[in-house]
């Protein structure tokens, strides 16, 4: 329970939108993001024409009365958010030891030795993705352990 609460709290701090709360609850496991972008058959046909969104999937460009103070655009570079939003692609890249997602992660960690960073994660894949129900929050904690360990 505590874990869930803290997870919600972390997400709540970074974002304000309802969609991200949904991601906080369901979008964190493997596979969830892949299913999120799907539309029904009829909507698929029409929605692509309109390129519509229900308007809640987004970050704010500006926020607060003073405009761009804690603009959520900046929250995009947050590791927690990145991992939650890219669970499957990141897991794939870590296992392969290369790719755009693990490169991005390396730059977020400001890794000096990028190849070393990637090899370390690859070699510890099973310590990062510990079980099928692993959440992005746990993945981040495990990555931190591997990187610092």
């Amino acid at each position: 329970m505590k874990k869930i609460l803290s997870l919600v709290a972390v997400f709540g701090l970074v974002f304000a939108s309802a969609e991200v709360f949904a991601a906080g609850n369901t979008g964190c496991g493997l596979g969830a993001v892949l299913l999120k972008g799907k539309k029904g058959k009829v909507m698929e046909l029409l929605a692509t024409c309109l390129n519509g969104t229900s308007g809640n999937q987004t970050f704010a460009i500006t926020s607060g009365t003073s405009g761009y103070e804690e603009g959520a655009v900046i929250g995009m570079t947050d590791v927690e958010v990145f991992v939650a939003k890219n669970m499957d692609s990141l897991a794939t890249d870590i296992a392969r030891g290369n790719g755009e997602y693990v490169d991005t992660l390396a730059s977020m960690y400001k890794a000096q030795d990028v190849d070393g960073f990637k090899t370390k994660l690859k070699n510890n894949f099973d310590k990062i993705y510990t079980n099928t129900g692993v959440t992005s929050k746990e993945v981040v904690a495990n990555i931190n352990d591997v990187v610092n360990g």
Binding site: L45, C49, L50, G52, M76, N86, T104
Partner: peptide
């Protein structure tokens, strides 16, 4: 820093409600 995938993407989209298909098309 060449982190293209975490760059801000600006999207212009209709703020649609879940209308019945044909109505949705006409409205759009």
């Amino acid at each position: 820093q060449n982190k293209r995938i975490i760059s801000p993407a600006i999207n212009y989209a209709a703020n649609t409600t879940e209308d019945f298909g044909p109505i949705f098309a006409v409205k759009g």
